[in-house]
Amino acid sequence: MLRFWFKEFPQYPCDHTDYWRTRLISYALLVTTSYFLILTIINIVTFSDFSLALLDGTGLLFSLGIFAWFRATGNVTVTSWAVTIMVTALILLFIVTSQGYSHSLYWATLVPPFAFFLLGRTSGTGVSTFTFFICALVVYEQMETQQPAFFAFGSLLNVIEVSIAHILLFRFYEQARSSAYDTLAIRNAEILQLAETDKLTGLYNREKLENTLIACLPGVDEQHPLSVMLLDVDYFKKVNDQYGHFEGDKVLQALAKKLKDLMREQDIVARWGGEEFVVLCTNASLETAMQLAQRIREDIAKQVICGHGLTVSVGVAQYVPGDSVESLLDRADVGLYQAKNNGRNSVIAA
């Protein structure tokens, strides 16, 4: 029954801004429908008061009508207004008919949570102001009539019922708030990943590598050396010209995965641009980086990547005191240039 009542709307997934409004609408309609149904039955069976039963039955039909229309259309905005008006009218009717006695005014405190959540700040303020204005008139009437107030069992029930309703409402709002923050954290993580990841290869992009280098340089010393490699795929333009750029993209993706597999766990691989890649080798001297670069060059030369035989040229440089990110990468670029001039498929230290 509840699964039928709480319909999942495809246009309002759990990360949609209106998802929790649809949930509150369903909860509110479930409560009001049950309320009118119970009162209708009690007035007919217990009190034989058919006039009140007709009034409650009308409320029941109105509540079910809103529910049916909401399920059919999924229109959150119109339904939010309908539910807020119905709940507000129901509460004000109870307050006015009881003349504000027996702590019935306490029910008015439920209107702002509904109105602000379903209608937003501006309309919620208007509905809440109107509600409390009516309550103020009721209290003013009490002052004018100067009738003594009697606190019977009904007063206690009103306090208990409204307090329970507040607890349930704010548990619901906390769940909505927590869900919204969790979704925001996920989205922020996704945005951060997109900002620092090369879309084609899934490697770090140029900006992320530069920022990582900036963070690493202050900690470099003789015990913790740092080297970089600048790799370029030889004659890659022929792949694009002969087989098309889509095929070239597939080759770059496969090569990026191959490079990640060949690196040490602490190394960082990034796409520098086009068919160029940079490897940041932490805790690696120039000799260690050269050995690693030679192994990478030899392994790639032996492989067939996406049906293509490839070779790479590599320039290697080690950080020296006074180096900046630009000077370190420039020296690696000089080594790469020399490797290209030496016939490619080679590793040169600079």
Rank of each mutant, 00 (worst) to 15 (best):
D299L: 06
N342K: 15
E210Q: 11
T201C: 02
Q142I: 00
G100R: 00
Q142H: 03
H245E: 08
Y243E: 12
L286C: 04
L230Y: 00
M143E: 03
L213Q: 05
I66H: 00
T109D: 06
Q146K: 07
D221H: 08
A254W: 06
G244E: 04
L169A: 05
A149Y: 13
L252V: 03
G219L: 08
Y243T: 11
S179D: 07
S313L: 00
F9C: 07
A215Q: 10
I214C: 08
L259P: 00
S102G: 11
M143S: 06
T97C: 02
D330V: 13
L310E: 02
I268H: 03
V279M: 03
T288G: 06
I296V: 13
I41A: 14
N211T: 12
A256M: 13
L231K: 01
L203R: 02
L230A: 07
G74K: 07
N158E: 12
L39D: 07
I191E: 05
K199H: 10
R23F: 06
G343Y: 08
I167F: 14
F151N: 07
Q193P: 02
L292T: 01
T46Q: 12
L92C: 15
F47N: 06
Y19C: 04
E190S: 11
V314W: 01
D333R: 14
P321K: 15
F9E: 03
S179N: 09
T311Y: 01
D15P: 05
V138T: 07
G59R: 04
V159L: 15
C281N: 00
P112N: 09
F153G: 10
M86Q: 12
A256I: 13
W5A: 14
V314Y: 01
A195V: 14
C216R: 07
V76T: 12
H308E: 14
G100W: 01
H245T: 09
Q99F: 09
D261W: 15
G244V: 08
D330P: 10
Q294S: 03
Y140D: 03
I214W: 08
E298Y: 10
T282P: 00
V111D: 03
L2E: 15
K260Y: 13
E247D: 06
K237Q: 05
V279W: 02
A270W: 01
K7Y: 08
S102H: 12
P10R: 11
Y173D: 03
I296W: 01
S327F: 13
P13S: 10
F114R: 02
T282R: 01
V220S: 06
L157M: 13
L230C: 04
D261M: 15
L168E: 05
R3Y: 03
I44A: 05
Y27L: 15
N211F: 10
H245V: 08
I95M: 14
Q303R: 10
Y204S: 09
E287I: 05
G343T: 05
V304L: 14
A254H: 08
T197V: 07
L30C: 14
V314G: 01
L118Q: 00
Q253W: 07
A185H: 10
V162L: 09
E326H: 12
T33D: 09
L194H: 07
I164P: 06
H166I: 12
L61D: 07
G59L: 11
I44W: 04
S63K: 02
S123E: 11
A317H: 00
